[in-house]
Design a protein around this nucleic acid. Sequence first.
DNA 1: CCTGGCACTCGGTAGAATCGAGTGCTAACA
DNA 2: TGTTAGCACTCGATTCTACCGAGTGCCAGG
Lengths: 345, 345
Amino acid sequence: MAFVEPMDLDERKAAILRAVVEEYIETAEPVGSQRVARTRKLGVSSATVRNDMTVLEHEGYVTQPHTSAGRIPTDLGYRYFVDHFTKEGALRVAHQRAVAEFFATAHRALEDLLHETSQLLSRVTDHTAMVVGPQPEVAHIRSVQLVTLHPGVVLAVAVLSNGAVEKFTLELPDQPDEAQVSATAAAFEAHWSGCAFNDLPQLAPSGDDAVDALARGVQAGFAQLVGERPMEMLYVGGTSRLAAEHESFATAESAAHLLELLEHQVVVVSLVRNLLDQGVSVSIGSENEIEELRDCAIVLAPYQVEGEPAGTVGVLGPTRMDYRLTIGAVAAVSQQLGRLLTRVD
Amino acid sequence: MAFVEPMDLDERKAAILRAVVEEYIETAEPVGSQRVARTRKLGVSSATVRNDMTVLEHEGYVTQPHTSAGRIPTDLGYRYFVDHFTKEGALRVAHQRAVAEFFATAHRALEDLLHETSQLLSRVTDHTAMVVGPQPEVAHIRSVQLVTLHPGVVLAVAVLSNGAVEKFTLELPDQPDEAQVSATAAAFEAHWSGCAFNDLPQLAPSGDDAVDALARGVQAGFAQLVGERPMEMLYVGGTSRLAAEHESFATAESAAHLLELLEHQVVVVSLVRNLLDQGVSVSIGSENEIEELRDCAIVLAPYQVEGEPAGTVGVLGPTRMDYRLTIGAVAAVSQQLGRLLTRVD
DNA sequence: CCTGGCACTCGGTAGAATCGAGTGCTAACA
DNA sequence: TGTTAGCACTCGATTCTACCGAGTGCCAGG
């Protein structure tokens, strides 16, 4: 409830706000004026702190859970804290080393890499982590292959330039013979090589009915893949931390709700939207448009492959999180992941 | 605490035990003698029920959370219930239809299918569901392909007979040219076609250094895939139900522990071990060797592809679950999944 | 503008009283 | 011998009360 246009705080008020946020993050208990006056060397008495706190409350930075309790940061308070006191994220040395080591020794398929990246980020931050895969729209076809699994059942496989493999099975009423299948595969290979996966050109009909049926099936199958599936894959690591953090949330069910959101990949929308920004961006509580994220903060950073923004890494935790550590971790992981993908990709 | 060798219960005691289990499953509260005498038409008074209950308690089928409270089933009690009163699982019509419809319209890649199967099973049972993919040891190579992503970076792709695709990226110090790569691919394709994925024969050296380096890399890469990764993929659906069920568990953290177990795929071991059985098998509380599953029950059924046991589907929930419904759902899904994979596979 | 002092608020905790569902036991009964 | 009614007893859960104390707002003096 900001009664006043949010303005810059004078130095002492800022320090007090900072103290409230930091203490509250650490102890999870409302912070009183004495505590601030004692632990911080502000050189003023608790009464002065109290006065400033009333102002901070009027301006909407802090609030009281009830009369005669200490202060708790509001979303606006966290926002001020993030904007002013976390310019550079701080990452513990052990964590820095863990991240560096991980990316130095990672040699896996893209999916595995992203999955394990999410687990790494979760481990470092102690929160649930998300990794959105590179947008495959920028990926190009490297190879198309048709493999007959059983008579009448063909597996279509496309290898993309980013190392991803897209595939689907196709059931055909009239069973093309092996020669027809490989001819079709060769035709696709020739026509699609280098094409963007999300804009595959039509293949000219060959005149052979069985072949054309197969070709139509393949074409339709990939078109469906592009269309229906949100192609950015979402990898979530450390979901258990969500359940463990339930104390930080209002109700116990809210944790379950969040898990559900993640499982249904609802959050992706919000992730992609925020992708506009370049550096680390933080979304606090009510700043999130999704109702269930009211008590959560999301720390995001896009990663760049070959200079182009490709995907996003992020952390989902309670608003009461260690922003400096989280921001540092997200920044480090997004950079390293981008670098690794640029090299290997 | 069974003081007596577990014996068959007389009809009335069995009915009382059944009543206790069913009522407790429904209400989650200790069941008293009056409740049993009233709701069930046993034709006896609560005093008689009380007497029988003492016997049931001595024999270890039920227990009291504290003196002067109703009875709660023990693991042994659930066991008796499952063995005697759930011979045929019961599935609601709406659920039966949902399962049938799902498998009638499923046309996706293997991974997607298994993943969505786990979500289906979770939705039907209202618990966390697990699907273990077909063991790829029985899968055979259908196609091997090497795709140059960048100079010096090759993606090796193997298509298996079960529709799975295994792949990894390979970085080569000396960059083979396109002709060498395709020659190597052709050689692998020729030598490995039809071979079991877990037992790939060595390729004879060609004499060309660059080609042999590439071949060794590919060989080693697949060998590593076979060796290091637990090849049965585990798909977990409905993790949010675990968090929602936290009331059923002793501590709130235990739900987080379970999530962690699932994420690290620890449960797989126990799943594969139980795969011996043919039909639906139920593992209740302390029957599970894993400490964290002390308050959980696992309902499992293998599914068969072409007559051979291939993988497992299962449900993880609190010991206080609706066994009839769960068993019915697991049985139905395992059968249908097996049938679908036999057709398409 | 800061500070010490002071009355006041109110959540949290501890203890006492009470309630009631449920038990075990015993005696009577078929 | 098995069943039932009656009864004293147990003990978790709930309610009420009193009380403590951290914290606040405000005021008067430096």
